[in-house]
Amino acid sequence: MLERVLFICPEFHNYENEIVKELKTKFNHVDTITYDELKYIKINKLQSKWIKLKRLFTGVESKVLKGKYLYKNNFSSLNKDIGKYDFEYDRLLVIKGYGIYPETIRNIKAKVKTIYQWDTISRYPLVKDIYHCFDYVFTFDREDSKSGYGCYLPNFLCKTNVVSDVHHDVFYVGSLNKERYEYFSWLTEKLRLQGFNYFIKLIGDTRKYKDVDFIQSYEIDKDEYNQLLAASKGVIEFGREGQYGFTQRYYEGMLNKKVILTVGKYNVNDDEAPYIMAIGDEGFIDRTLLNQKYNALTKLPLPAIVDDIELGNWLDKVLCLR
């Protein structure tokens, strides 16, 4: 067991706490900096207008201009907080890293520094400016890896042992954004017309979406999430536009022997293919095929990737512990 690790990660559906628990089995001391990223990326209307005006004169993408503004004005306090950790570390693990300055990473005293990117570079282009400060860079996105932005490694998987009777045909829980709102507004209506039982929730600010039954403001805790997933036949895998990496839902579904209902076409390994079923362009799901696949999965072994990315094994790889 190594002595000390520094772990820096935005808060996201309690996954950061799952990582901390596993790190404590591998290090004597785990120093943790977790933070609400939304607190740092908020921008007021005046600032937004200034960015749009500057874009007209410079031709620079709005997301780049916004990022530079946020780095300079909003993220300075986070970097100051990180700078207070002055121990000598065996390992540094940063998840995502958006808003962290290169000098902040350089000033951390760690024998091995690793960053894992669980977002696409196209959404947060400035984050790649700190990659040179790390010994190892990993990404969940295949295309970002092909473009030289890190070694491809799928998202980690937190193993669970939840057993439940099936109550839902279709399951999805995720953060609210415009793309997901538009898709699930359309899909839930299609599912209703087909007579499917479903549990679909988007978590976010409900003020703009009053009386939308699949949007709520409060989080679903991980235990409840696991119970709901276990009680479903199919799990929807819905990636953002331009995203070429699977979410945790994809692997959690496989772990629990659920049918992965995909939006669009996916290239998958041979032992993952039996789990995959595409949602039709018109929102059609073949009920008979869904039931057949679900029943057949109970007799199949888990895909090899499930064990490879189990959180403990995943950490061993990203932190070079083996």
Rank of each mutant, 00 (worst) to 15 (best):
F238R: 02
F238E: 03
G239M: 07
G239K: 02
R240M: 12
R240H: 13
R240D: 11
E241V: 12
G242H: 14
Y244H: 05
G245C: 08
R249S: 05
R249T: 10
Y251N: 04
Y251V: 04
G253R: 00
M254P: 01
L255A: 02
L255Q: 00
V259P: 00
I260Y: 00
I260F: 05
I260W: 01
L261C: 12
L261P: 01
T262R: 02
T262D: 03
V263E: 13
V263T: 14
V263L: 09
G264Q: 09
G264D: 09
N267S: 14
N267A: 11
D271E: 15
E272N: 04
E272S: 04
P274R: 07
A278D: 07
A278N: 11
A278Y: 10
A278T: 11
A278S: 07
I279K: 03
I279A: 05
I279Q: 03
G280N: 11
D281Q: 15
D281P: 10
G283R: 05
F284M: 14
I285A: 03
D286P: 03
R287H: 07
R287D: 05
R287F: 07
R287W: 08
L289V: 07
L289W: 05
Q292G: 12
Q292N: 13
Q292E: 11
K293T: 02
K293R: 05
Y294C: 12
Y294W: 14
Y294H: 14
Y294D: 11
L297G: 01
T298K: 09
L300H: 13
P301D: 01
L302E: 01
L302F: 04
L302V: 03
A304Y: 13
I305Y: 00
I305L: 04
V306K: 08
V306D: 05
D307W: 09
D308F: 09
D308C: 14
I309K: 02
L311R: 06
L311N: 11
L311M: 14
N313T: 13
N313H: 10
L315S: 09
K317M: 09
